[in-house]
Design a protein around this nucleic acid. Sequence first.
DNA 1: CTTCAAAAGTGGCCAGACCACTTTTGGATT
DNA 2: AATCCAAAAGTGGTCTGGCCACTTTTGAAG
Lengths: 213, 213
Amino acid sequence: MDKKTEQKKVFLDIVQQLRQLIKIEKIQAGEKLPSERVLSERLGVGRSSVREALRSLELLGLIETRHGEGMFLASTQKHQLVEILSMFILEGEKSKKDVELTRQIHEKEAIRVISCTETLRPLPVWGSFFVKLEIESTINCRDVLREIIITSGNRLSLKVWFQLAVYTGDRLNRNSTEEEKLIIQTMLKSMQLGYEKEALKAYEQWMNAEQGI
Amino acid sequence: MDKKTEQKKVFLDIVQQLRQLIKIEKIQAGEKLPSERVLSERLGVGRSSVREALRSLELLGLIETRHGEGMFLASTQKHQLVEILSMFILEGEKSKKDVELTRQIHEKEAIRVISCTETLRPLPVWGSFFVKLEIESTINCRDVLREIIITSGNRLSLKVWFQLAVYTGDRLNRNSTEEEKLIIQTMLKSMQLGYEKEALKAYEQWMNAEQGI
DNA sequence: CTTCAAAAGTGGCCAGACCACTTTTGGATT
DNA sequence: AATCCAAAAGTGGTCTGGCCACTTTTGAAG
């Protein structure tokens, strides 16, 4: 069913797989990534395709390359806007509440965009989520939200969100409760069906349930 | 002296040259770009390097590729040709469209918050706006939006918005047209009365009208 | 003039080669 | 044994050429 979205763009697929790999191997900022040749072999694709993906990530500032040494996961904060945000956060000018609310602004908008965009809803990434939700008894909250923002397609929004998510820390980067899992399932299902209101309602429910954690 | 700034990466250099090419040849949004092979020859580099640059721009959403057809400048909103090149912030690595969309995310949320919050709606600031709209034949677009964001009460959101607004520049910091003025009046009125949907509808209308400016 | 298959043009992807640079290695020197 | 240094290995940077899949154009047959 997802044939048409799968047949395209190997280099985009590689970008996804790289993110998986970084997660699985727990590669931290500043640490070394596998070499191009190794990635090429491990992923079963040509080196040039790997390079296309890596160069894209480099232009996004997500990785650094050092000639003769290798590639490294970029230390965060290269973006002007991001720096400003960080300054604001460190100043503690207001409360965590504003950070949280602002983060949620981006999350809600992403949900709206996806729910209202025909071409975004049937993406294979959702399928993998549903499978995971079936198999696993829990799921990482931040991962779900990040995937949603990424899929919405606004890369600047993603950058802003990511910084805010980092600040939110372990209150976001944690496994869901059983109750939350059900809500998340409802939300994703609604998004996929294009039910914007239901999706947002589930999202609100999720965020409220989170308060008790 | 500029040892460290010297262009080692060909693919980054190509990104720059593409920007020049688009400017010189006056290629507009939606129009076709030279083929990879032509670019390769014209820029005197290998096709694989050209592809690394192009794929990076694609991931950034600046160009679209259609298999068998060619590559096209991403058709964002129908801007005037004036500063298509400013769609690129090569150091900032973000596209104009994303900046605008992200800015609007914050604006819309502020409108929602105000419309749904009893204590925010009757604020005196709105009164002064209505007076001004009565007397003056026009009003500064940025001022209106800034006031809305400020009133919504999320200071972090305001900071983010302000940075984005600076970047948007004179397309935002300008006086409204007669048509816009009426829309703005409708929007403010709706907000004050708590009519969220109507307010957002007017906002959308405003932003769409802005495209023609 | 219409039809439609072949050709041309284009992006997608891969394999191999060479270069420049850095790190590692292992033998020679002290 | 410790040190030093040149060779080897590892890695990113780039180019060439090839093959495939897809779209548009072309030109000959009807």
